[in-house]
Design a protein around this nucleic acid. Structure first.
Length: 292
DNA sequence: AGCCCATCCTGTCCGC
DNA sequence: TGCGGACAGGATGGGC
């Protein structure tokens, strides 16, 4: 498939459901595989390694033990102390390719495995992403220090407590803050606020109990639905980036400035909130909650 | 505490 | 047709 055909101005911007789908594919394909060769193809990834990083050479002969996701990050552990910590940011991609398929200037790493025809590649047009070679213990530490709870695991009591704790933040930036809750990006935050009928500029701590519950439910339902749609729409994980297939089914406001709200037919508005564009319906998501 | 702005980077789009 | 500038955004870090 051609994921770069430019039908949409929005590239990939993987958030929790996309990363979950990618990880699902990686698990199926790569668990137990032994590294034959691991090389950086451009200086970019090397520059992004922290001082404690391991050399890519030290992965040779090591077997992949586990692959999982935490927030938007992908973690790969090996049968020794090595690990890989990957963040795709906006335009990063992981995909399998035949080694004879040419690499372009945006492909920054390749990973070959014994007895496996295809190789894993890391590609990233805007170079915001990273693939760090670190001890798995260090990755686990880093990730738990930097990320809040998983939105699909958090219970309402904790969700509610966090709303109060960071209550002065506007709810949109509250949702985007990975230290508060991990894995939600600009698209899904707008979509869940729309579903919950909450204006993105409302202070987090000022949501009424009923609104907090609505948001909590919308968050879980939307993320689960997105994961399910992605999981069912792809047979091969190479397909899983971008805006193809079922993804649009969960897209109601994001990127739809000027289009009509599916509930009330008012024009969807776009506004910068904390430097991020936010899309919302001014009628279904009023700035005043209607209870004051 | 939380907002604002700049930074990183490249491709795309708009106006002249 | 071509060029320059604005824009997009996840995360971080400095200033207020």
């Amino acid at each position: 498939m051609d994921i770069f055909s430019g039908q949409s101005r929005i590239y990939f911007m993987p958030e929790l459901p996309e990363v979950e789908t990618i990880v699902g594919g990686l698990k199926l394909e790569l668990t137990g595989k032994k590294v034959k060769e691991f090389v950086f193809l451009s200086p970019h990834l090397k520059k992004k390694q922290p001082p404690s990083a391991l050399s890519p050479d030290s992965y040779r002969g090591k077997r992949i033990k586990e692959i999982w996701r935490r927030g938007k990050r992908i973690i790969i552990s090996f049968d020794s102390h090595e690990g890989l910590l990957i963040h795709l940011k906006m335009t990063g991609q992981l995909y399998l390719a035949n080694p004879d398929q040419p690499v372009d200037k945006h492909t920054h790493a390749r990973l070959r495995f014994s007895g496996m025809k295809k190789e894993l590649r890391f590609r990233d047009i805007r170079k915001f992403g990273y693939l760090n070679c670190l001890k798995i213990a260090e990755i686990k530490e880093k990730v738990s220090a930097e990320l809040g709870p998983e939105p699909l695991e958090i219970e309402f009591g904790d969700f509610s407590r966090l709303l109060k704790q960071y209550g002065k933040k506007r709810i949109k930036s509250w949702l985007l803050d990975q230290k508060i809750i991990a894995g939600i990006g600009n698209i899904y935050s707008d979509e869940m606020l729309f579903r919950a009928g909450i204006n993105p500029e409302r202070p987090a701590g000022q949501l009424w109990e009923e609104e907090a519950r609505k948001l909590y439910r919308a968050m879980k339902a939307l993320l689960r639905q997105a994961i399910k749609l992605k999981g069912s729409s792809v047979s091969n994980y190479v397909d899983l980036f971008g805006e193809k297939g079922e993804f649009q089914k969960v897209h109601r406001v994001y990127g739809k400035e000027g289009e009509l709200c599916p509930h009330c037919r008012t024009a969807i508005r776009r506004k910068k909130i904390n430097g991020r564009s936010s899309f919302f319906c001014p009628v279904c998501q009023p700035l005043k909650s209607g209870q004051e």
